[in-house]
Amino acid sequence: MEFGWLEITVAAIVISLILGVIFTRGSSWIEPRFWKNIAIVTSLVMVVFLLILTFDTLASIKMGNGRVPEATVINKKISYVYDEQKRWYVPKVSGEEPLFGKIWSEEEALALINKGKMTIQSKACMDCHTLLGNGGYYAPDLTKAWLDPKWNLLIKDMVGANSKEEAMAKWIQHPDQYPTFQRKMPDLGITDEEAKAIVAYLKWMSAIDTNGFPDNFKADEQ
């Protein structure tokens, strides 16, 4: 969008004011009619602004339009780096990094993360975890789970896996067998295929530009 937020905010207020003045001409503020017209005008202006912003937002959060990555980002190396200009962290996508030993085609990648999303919803992960900071507070935030150093530092050896993604898939299937906290995650009956899909989804999600949330995240350097 060409306009900054300040212009948008000022425009919404000024337009409400002008229309408010026009539509309440001739009625005293003590009449309910006065407030009725103000309420109608302001609400309509706000709704129109919300709709315009929604179109703009939807365009910029389409997969592959910059802020939200394409599915094939699961074939790339993802990191989380500090941006001096913005003064917050941004995801950085660089070079090839196969997932589960393979480069996924566009259709395959999309099908995989789609499966991941459906599994995350069907198992109600979000009623324990937060994703992008929204959900339940009983378990860690998963926004950047793919980048968490604990997979390589601890879990890989614990579950006996050769790669981070394999470690994640194994752990997610049997979290109750490898607890790292007295509050365990239950075994949710996740199949091999679903576990891979979840890992792909977490990798994809870690590449979303979230305006720097979470700040200071200590991403895995590997």
Binding site: F3, W5, I8, S60, N134, D209
Partner: peptide
């Protein structure tokens, strides 16, 4: 809409 991937103007608005 601060942190869910949506554009920066939402921070201000």
């Amino acid at each position: 809409y601060f942190w869910i991937g949506t554009p920066e103007y939402w921070l201000g608005i």
